[in-house]
Design a protein around this nucleic acid. Structure first.
Lengths: 160, 160
DNA sequence: GCCTGATTGTTGGGTAGTCAAACAATCGAT
DNA sequence: ATCGATTGTTTGACTACCCAACAATCAGGC
């Protein structure tokens, strides 16, 4: 097999330069790794991180509207439409007109949605502990603290 | 102004349920916040995190190939093409045929690319320290360690 | 009541990032 | 000289997001 072993910087290992000094670099890589691990280990690929989050939010906040969901996820409300379309199409979520305000749709889990979500949760929790295995409880707490800090600093983006 | 204050779970604050128990949830949010902060604070929006990473890799590994770049970034080599097209189109990167292997392209920074990258780096480093401000040196190290751990665990995705 | 302004969900168009499959050019090894 | 592998590229598809516009609906002022 024609295996080249690092001749002119072409193959073998690549020097990442100053990137490892940036938290953002590590964040991007971890996010990507997490995504891949999720895709190949959670519920046979039946659910994505985003859709899972939506199901949990609807379960925890019954009858919430699409706009409220969009605000909670920090996305435009038009981005919610295809998501709910998909989940409704799979019979996991119901979209019903609110009686006293016929503009808004009440989102709820169907019976099937509740059942499925229960299984998804189990799978996701397992995935999440696998991905953080090797970290002590303290280290995991520190990680979450750091991530929360970044989230806070990033929310009000404009610095100057 | 018609401002509703949290009536039926519609507006106001939404209960995230069990999501905060998941490291993946915090990771997703932090990544999103980081991205927004980058977009609105780095180099007047002239550069994206991805393109910045590519410039640094090319600078640190002169004459590297597109395939090597793809491998380093863990993406398909076809995904690299439009990136280099853009950077070459902006005059930051040069793409030249390698003399002894005319299949591969050697990637290098142009003089303009080097100058620009110097400025980008300054801006990115500032952005990165802003986003992690409030974390002690120790906390930041713990954060990076946790993220690295996740990256390692995620690389070999399949668990079972 | 009636009008005006705001809100909700939706559609349509546009951007960015990714993959997989196919292809020509080229190389390496036999 | 031929065969298999590699490189870059194109094409088509998919996901995820945004913004601008729109109809339906509501809420408040008058």
């Amino acid at each position: 097999m024609a295996k080249k072993i690092n001749e002119n910087g072409t193959n073998g290992s690549v020097d990442p330069g100053m990137l490892p000094e940036l938290v953002g670099f590590h964040l991007r890589r971890a996010q990507s790794a997490m995504f891949q691990h999720f895709a190949s280990n959670v519920a046979d690929g039946e659910i994505s991180p985003g859709h899972f989050g939506v199901l949990v939010l609807i379960e925890t906040n019954p009858a919430m509207s699409q706009s409220a969901l969009a605000k909670a996820l920090n996305v435009d409300r038009s981005s919610i439409v295809p998501v709910i379309n998909a989940l409704e199409g799979r019979g996991l979520v119901s979209r019903t007109k609110k009686p006293d305000d016929r503009r808004t749709h009440e989102l709820n889990l169907t019976a099937k949605g509740r059942t499925k979500l229960k299984a998804f949760k189990k799978s996701v929790i397992r995935h999440d502990s696998e991905i953080t295995s090797g970290l002590t409880r303290t280290e995991k707490a520190a990680l979450i603290k750091g991530l929360s800090r970044i989230t806070d600093r990033g929310i009000n983006a404009r610095t100057r």
